[in-house]
Design a protein around this nucleic acid. Sequence first.
DNA 1: CCATTCATGTCAGTATTCTGACATACTGGA
DNA 2: TCCAGTATGTCAGAATACTGACATGAATGG
Lengths: 148, 148
Amino acid sequence: MNGEANGIELPTSVGYLLKEAATALRVAMEAVLRPLGMSVTHYSCLELLAQRPGLSNSELARGAFVTRQSMNVLLQTLEREGQVTRPQQPSAGRVLPTELTAEGRALLAQASAAVRGVEDRMKAGLAPDEQKVFADQLRRCITSLTEG
Amino acid sequence: MNGEANGIELPTSVGYLLKEAATALRVAMEAVLRPLGMSVTHYSCLELLAQRPGLSNSELARGAFVTRQSMNVLLQTLEREGQVTRPQQPSAGRVLPTELTAEGRALLAQASAAVRGVEDRMKAGLAPDEQKVFADQLRRCITSLTEG
DNA sequence: CCATTCATGTCAGTATTCTGACATACTGGA
DNA sequence: TCCAGTATGTCAGAATACTGACATGAATGG
């Protein structure tokens, strides 16, 4: 206990709780993805490609919340391992549209199931209608932080 | 970049939104802390020490969601710069209780004000009673993820 | 038409964090 | 008492992500 009136009570601040929840989610995802030899960014990349085939390196980077340089390193590895394919030459501009291979899809299927389990566990304490409210509140937080 | 009206929905899972919100918060905090020469972990460390003077390196690491090795590196820097103090010898066990200096407190005061502005902006779209619900839902998510 | 601006892919170097390892110190039970 | 288990601080190396920079291509506006 102290009388620091100007400080922020960390354990009860929404920002701290948000970081704590995101960290817990990341740790839980790493735990289930490690047996598959995948990182969270690796999984995010494959999941994004499954939903939106042909995404560019930069678009994947934004979707996975890393820099395009980091995503580029990952894509080179995944291409070498045969999980994704990129054309040797850009068809238009500098963009190299990326797509999943059959092997990539197979790996993703395992990872998706594992991650779905984590997400279900996370949402276990939220009633179905609460989940909608929760998602909506998260979106509003994102909007408020991004618009300025 | 091509338009976003492709008909393909952006990821809408709660887990993805949680990561997106946490990333937006981190970016916003980095933006306001950079002019003060502080990182988010640096700020978290000082804020924790203000609320709970005498925390050990390991306890600070857990509170800031980094490893104790990373926190140790930070504490050595902060001690050299005069923002925190640690006894040369442990009084009991191996624990070295850390405390803020006057300089550390002054820096924290500026940082707290800046971070409070970010948090207020994030919560701007949430009604006061919604904020309580939101925090409670975050706590339930943390509990569900941590108990497994 | 050309210049400016922006976005992309990529290379290089830097910075930060993590994992592994070790010695030390407390704790709880046999 | 002794011992296994746990926790701490710290050193060293590895992994990861970032910032800076450059050339190229597209889009925009004068």
